[in-house]
Amino acid sequence: MSAIVTRELGKVYRAVGRTQMRALEAVDLNVREGEVYGFLGRNGAGKTTTIKILCSLLRPTSGEAFVLGENARTRKARGLIGYLPEQPYFYEYLTPRETIDFYARLQGLDAAARAREWEKLAGMLDLRGIADQRVKGFSKGMRQRLGFAVALVGDPPILILDEPMSGLDPLGRRSIRELILWMRDAKKTLFFSSHVLGDVEQICDRVGILVRGRLTHEGRLDELLGEQVKQVEIIVAGLSPEAARPLAARAVSHRTLDELDAFLVDGQDAANDLVRAVHGAGGRLVEFSPVRKSLEDYFIEAQEKDKAS
C-alpha cells in the first residue's frame, strides 16, 4: 500500500483585497511504505503547503490527499502521522518531560504509557540531560531534537518533516540525518522537504521536485541521475610527462598525483578514446570512474527548464 497519495492536489490562497495566489497545482504524489522520500523545491515552491495539507492544517482547494488509504482530513489519518514543522515551537514554560507528557495525553495515552513513551524517546533523542529545563532557553538544535521526539510520540508509521535540517549547524544536521536513517531502519516511511540537496542525496530513496507549485520530476535518485553520466575521471599510471601532455590537451582537466595522472573527460565516448590513447602511450589504467550528475545539477536544470518554458 502507498503511504502517502495525493490526487490533483491544488491550493489557492485567497485574501480579502489581494490577488489570489496559486500555491499548488494538480500535484500527484505517491510515497511508498517504508521509503525515504525527499521533497525538493526552492523557497515558495509549495513544499510547506503540501505538507500542511497532508497534516490537515490546510484544506486543499482541489484534489485529495490520503495517508495509508485514509483521507488526510480524518482524525484516523492524523494518528498515522508524526509531524515536525519547520522550526518547531513548543510551550516555552514546559520542560521536555512535560512537553512529551502533554503530547502523549493528546494521543490519549494513559499514565503508564506516557511514562514509557518518555523513557523511550528521552533515550532515543538524548533528552535526559535537559529533561527538566524549560524549553525557553533551548537552542535550535535542542528544539529540533524535542520536535523529533514529539513527532515520534505514539510511534506513528509515517513521519512528515518540514525542512528538518534548516538552520542547524553541520553537527546538528548530521544528527538529524542519522535519526532519519535510524527511522528508515525502523521501517518507517519518511517524507521530508528540504533545499539542502546534499542531505537529500545521501538519505533519500526517491525524490520529488516541486517547481512553482507543480511536481515536475519524481523518481528514484539513480533513475533521475544514474544514466546521465556527465564526465569521467580516468586515473592512469606509467605515463611520462611528455606522453601525458598531448593527452591532457584532450581532457577537461589534468592533474598529477605522485606517480599517477588524473584526467577528467567530457562524456563516455571521449573517455573510451582517451583510455585507448593511454594504452597506446604505454600507460596503465588504474581507475575509471563516471562522474554522475549531482542532484544539485539536476535540480538547477529542472528550475531552468521551467523558467524557459
Binding site: R78, Y83, P88, Y89, V150
Partner: peptide, 14 residues
C-alpha cells in the same frame, strides 16, 4: 502566531 498550534491540532484529536 507562535506556531505552537501546528503540532497540537495535527494530533489525532478533533
Amino acid at each position: 502566531d507562535k506556531r505552537t498550534l501546528y503540532t497540537i491540532i495535527t494530533q489525532p484529536m478533533h
